[in-house]
Amino acid sequence: ALFDRAGTESVDVAADPRTAAAILRGALAARGHRVIATEHVGGVHLYADRFRYARFGSLVGHVSLVLLLLTAAVGSRVSYADDGFVVPEGSTREVGLAGLSARVASFEAEYYTTGQPKDFRSDLILLRDGSEVARKTIRVNEPLDYDGVRFYQSFFGPAAVVRVTDSSGAVVFDDGVALAWRTDGDRPVGPVRVPGRDVTAYVVAPSAAGRDTLISPGEMRLEIYEGASDRPVKMETLAQGEDVSAAGLTFTFVREKQFTGLRVTRDPTVPVIWLASALLVIGVTAVLVFPTRRLWALARPAAGGSRVAVITVGRRDSSQDDEIKELLAQLSRPAGAQTEAPRRRGRAPAPEARALPEQ
């Protein structure tokens, strides 16, 4: 019944069924097919396939998609990202991951003639328990990667070095302050939280939007708050080197600097994502480039030799049609008989051309 279906190709061969099956088997093996032959009373049956494992490409592709979805779900819970990690030039800040601290040894920025940033980079040092473990000059697309944690250069801005001393003259704070936030008047601002004291001072720089009538270029304004009060105990605009006293402390604006803004990420699922992506590519490639080919053939006795019928099941393309026609044409040649056009069931056969007997 299989070889009675529409789409069956057949050809007469001037050889017995065993010989015809052997010729077809050799032709299929030469084209990379695995061939299984079984002999029955009605003739010789052949089954051939090529790229038989490629059909698992669909399974691999689906598994990779599920793996990607699961990885995304897990990654959202176990990954870490800080898009606003700021470190003033010359300062050190704790990262909060794996006992790491980051120090910016230097920061440099280059500009176009229009004033737009051309390039900016940070000489970044990573410390663990006070010891240097990694160092690199990072740029926007050149991060520092250490122990699964990545540091990307993201942005930059102004900073101010502030020194705070108590009434005895002891230094309680001496560090850079990143002015990474903005006031309502578009002025850069950053906080100084005095260690051991319930005192916070906000350092405000001149507005970047244009001329500032309150703060001149090169100056900083300090707004000092004590406790939970929302009213400052002191507000003063200072030039470089000047100081102001409030809440039993003396605040000195030492000099201007810049801060670097980093994006810090850690995602332990990245290797799994790469694996799932590779599996997806392999699966899709296997399905599209190496489609599984399956073919059934039957060589049975017929007048003058045998008749070989060939059929495929499933999706069939033009390249497979051409291959079957070439196989059947190859079958008809070895016996020296007139090559007959392959017959397809369901269509009217072409008129046969018969050779006249020799005189």
Rank of each mutant, 00 (worst) to 15 (best):
S91A: 15
A72E: 06
V63P: 06
D82H: 08
E94A: 13
Y80F: 12
T92G: 02
L65F: 13
S64A: 15
A81G: 05
A81M: 08
P88T: 06
E89F: 08
V87G: 00
E94S: 11
P88E: 08
L67E: 13
D82L: 03
V66N: 12
L68C: 10
G84F: 07
G61K: 14
F85C: 06
E89L: 11
R93I: 02
V87F: 02
G61D: 12
R93A: 11
G61N: 13
P88D: 08
V78C: 05
S79V: 01
S76L: 09
G90Y: 08
L69N: 06
V66P: 06
L67W: 13
L67A: 15
G61P: 10
G61F: 15
A72Y: 01
Y80I: 03
F85K: 04
F85R: 07
V66M: 14
L68T: 12
V74T: 15
G61L: 15
S64Q: 11
A72D: 07
G61W: 14
G90D: 12
V87P: 06
V63G: 13
P88A: 04
S76I: 06
A72S: 08
E89K: 10
F85N: 07
S91K: 03
A72Q: 07
A81H: 03
D82M: 01
T71V: 02
D83T: 06
D83I: 09
V87H: 01
L65N: 11
G61H: 11
Y80R: 05
V74R: 10
A72P: 06
G75Q: 01
S64K: 10
T71A: 09
V78T: 02
F85H: 04
V87N: 03
P88S: 07
H62C: 13
D83R: 06
E89A: 13
L67Y: 00
L69S: 15
T71Q: 07
V74S: 08
S91G: 10
A72H: 07
A72L: 08
G84K: 07
V63H: 12
V63L: 15
L70H: 09
G75D: 02
L68E: 10
A81L: 01
T71L: 10
L67H: 10
L70P: 06
T71K: 00
V78W: 00
S79M: 02
V86W: 00
V86E: 04
G75P: 01
V86A: 07
R77I: 00
Y80N: 05
G61R: 15
L70G: 09
Y80D: 06
V87A: 00
V63S: 14
G90R: 10
L68A: 12
R77E: 05
E94L: 01
V78P: 00
L69I: 15
H62A: 13
L68I: 10
V86I: 02
L65Y: 13
Y80H: 13
G90N: 09
G75N: 05
G84C: 05
L65S: 14
D82T: 01
V86K: 04
A81Y: 03
